[in-house]
């Protein structure tokens, strides 16, 4: 097992280095000169902008720039924002807890909703609760998050005054964006839970449990859930990546000061160090989650190790 984990980590590191290179390259290919954008309407003579490009190291060969960036990153220095002159690491550290709170809450919500609706549907397979859940799930995955977000704001903030419309100051501010983020994933989780449940409900050991006259709550709670939980958890873990993607949109809708808002803003301004930092962070998060998931898989199903 230990060797398997080590091997996975060994693979994750070069992946991250490659990710960093791709991000770096992509940003340089995107049209838009960060120095030109830094000056408002009256750009100084080209010579002055060239000087600034030199100061920022933008005039060096691409590979040299990348090497310098990699070297600094490995020492924990993600550089300094072109715009605010603040260290990227501290800009990210400021916002990361909020995004983690958002994603964590959303994951919990998605899991709760997904499990309950999935179980409900499976227990009433083919009847109206099942159909209704399917319909809800479809609605869940087909609503764009920016639209859903505005609707939730209108309902819970403007009409009912239960929750704040925008901002990120308190945990209450995370509720609406987390819900927005969660619904699509809850729909997917509900579908998966349902299908796994239906299958397991049909298996012998469950039939036996029913036959023994065990109360339904116990059958579902002990026998079925235990078997559904593994694929479910795996899936929920994998959705972290999606949630991070979603955070880019949702944080903008709710004015939620997290990593996603920072990323979109930095990209628009071509603030390369900040954008790189944000993407790298997202990629690291994704790789870490995958690592954990793969290790879990390896624990549950030894066959996987040979495949990987």
């Amino acid at each position: 097992m230990g060797r398997y984990v080590l091997a996975r980590i060994g693979v994750a590191v070069p992946t991250l280095v490659l990710v960093s290179f791709c991000v770096f390259l992509m940003l340089r290919l995107v049209p838009g000169d960060p120095v030109r954008l830094m000056f408002g309407m009256t750009p100084p003579p080209e010579s002055e902008m060239a000087l600034l490009r030199h100061e920022l190291g933008l005039d060096e060969p691409l590979l040299a720039q990348y090497a310098a960036f990699l070297d600094r990153s490995l020492h924990g220095d993600l550089g300094v924002s072109y715009r605010s002159k603040e260290p990227v690491a501290s800009m990210i550290a400021d916002r990361l807890p909020r995004t983690l709170r958002l994603i964590g809450l959303s994951l919990v919500l998605a899991a709760l909703l997904g499990l309950s609706f999935g179980i409900l549907a499976a227990l009433h397979s083919g009847r109206w609760p099942d159909l209704a859940t399917s319909a809800l799930a479809v609605v869940g995955v087909s609503i764009p998050q920016f639209w859903l977000g505005l609707m939730l704001i209108l309902l819970f903030a403007v009409r009912l005054h239960w929750l704040p419309a925008a901002g990120s100051a308190t945990p209450a501010h995370a509720v609406l964006p987390a819900t927005t983020l969660a619904l699509g994933n809850a729909a997917v989780l509900a579908r998966v839970t349902r299908s796994a449940m239906v299958e397991i409900l049909g298996q012998d050991f469950v039939r036996t449990a029913w036959a023994k006259g065990l109360p339904p709550a116990r059958v579902v709670g002990v026998h079925v859930l235990k078997n559904v939980l593994i694929p479910f958890l795996t899936l929920a873990g994998l959705q972290l990546g999606d949630l991070l993607s979603g955070a880019f949109v949702v944080e903008n809708v709710f004015g939620y000061a997290g990593i996603g808002q920072l990323g979109v803003y930095a990209m628009a301004q071509r603030d390369f160090p900040v954008t790189q930092g944000v993407v790298l962070l997202a990629a690291t998060g994704y790789v870490l989650v995958n690592l954990v998931v793969d290790v879990l898989y390896g624990l549950v199903d030894p066959r996987i190790r040979y495949d990987a």
């Binding site: 505005l150 704001i153 903030a157 403007v158 419309a165 925008a166 901002g167 809708v253 709710f254």
Partner: peptide, 8 residues
């Protein structure tokens, strides 16, 4: 969102 916040 600003206007929603204004209304609330």
């Amino acid at each position: 969102t600003q206007l929603a916040a204004l209304e609330s």
